[in-house]
């Protein structure tokens, strides 16, 4: 942990060397998704609601999804840009250090410019909350935190899985964005609006559903979602990291026997 904090400090220091670039990127990270949100607003302005979900309800989900994605991208950037580490051969260097490889890859790179996206998410989230007028309970606080934490872990898990693929092939990894960026775009809406096959995939393969439509329904006290157990459901998302890390270890083993 102490080492991890040292890595974070180093990441901040490295990024602050280029201050102007940092601030411009932050601003970009704020506005690019914000325009998506405006698009969402225009959509709702025309259709009023989406299968029973109102604009503010979707905005709440949008806010949380973007916060989770921004945090995952900021802190798990090392895995996100891992193919570069393999391509340049610098992964060898990590194997020379007496520290586990996942920790080193995490520490290798941070992307703090995602604070722009985070801020955008926080603003929309707060705005949506104030509009909805939620009936607050402790369990709901636990539930919202869970949506954020579970979301971070699911996105991180995806980053790790696609980083691992780089051990076999360095080309063609753009396809990974279907799941990461695509997952984000998809999960900023309640998953219940999608076709059954899409819903199934994002429930059983990549468990976005546990941080998405289910807890959202619980928060908004939708019929059929009264049980307090739903408040804890988003924490299931955390476990998505486990198979991801196993896959990672498998990849490292393969790398060590081929060195390619």
């Amino acid at each position: 942990m102490r080492l991890y904090l040292h890595y974070v400090k180093m990441g901040i220091k490295s990024q602050m060397v280029y201050k102007l670039s940092f601030f411009l990127l932050c601003i970009g990270q704020f506005f690019v998704p914000f325009f998506v949100f405006i698009g969402m607003y225009l959509l709702f302005d025309r259709f009023e609601n989406l299968q029973g979900w109102s604009f503010t309800e979707v905005a709440l989900l949008y806010g949380i999804t973007h916060m989770a994605f921004a945090l995952a991208e900021a802190f798990v950037r090392g895995f996100d840009s891992f193919p570069n580490l393999v391509k340049s051969g610098d992964f060898d260097r990590l194997l020379l250090r007496p520290v586990s490889t996942p920790l080193q890859v995490l520490g290798w790179k941070f992307e703090f410019t995602r604070i722009g996206r985070l801020l955008q998410g926080v603003l929309i989230f707060t705005w949506a909350l104030s509009k909805i007028g939620l009936h607050w309970t402790l369990l709901k606080v636990i539930c919202i935190s869970g949506m954020l934490i579970g979301g971070i872990f699911i996105f991180s898990g995806l980053f790790i899985i696609f980083a691992t693929v780089a051990f076999w092939t360095i080309e063609g990894l753009e396809i990974a964005n279907i799941f990461t960026d695509g997952g984000r775009e998809l999960s900023q809406y309640p998953l219940s609006i999608y076709a059954k096959s899409v819903r199934r995939f994002f429930t059983f393969v990549v468990p976005f559903a546990v941080v998405n439509v289910v807890p959202l329904s619980y928060l908004l006290e939708k019929p059929g979602y009264q049980s307090d157990l739903y408040a804890f459901m988003p924490y299931i998302g955390v476990f998505f990291i486990v198979p991801a890390l196993f896959f990672w270890q498998f990849g490292v083993k393969h790398y060590k026997s081929t060195g390619s």
Binding site: L3, V17, P98, V99
Partner: peptide, 14 residues
């Protein structure tokens, strides 16, 4: 991007 000493300090923790 950082001074040499910072790298050394990090290696100390590693």
């Amino acid at each position: 991007d950082v001074p040499v000493l910072d790298s050394f300090n990090l290696l100390k923790d590693i």
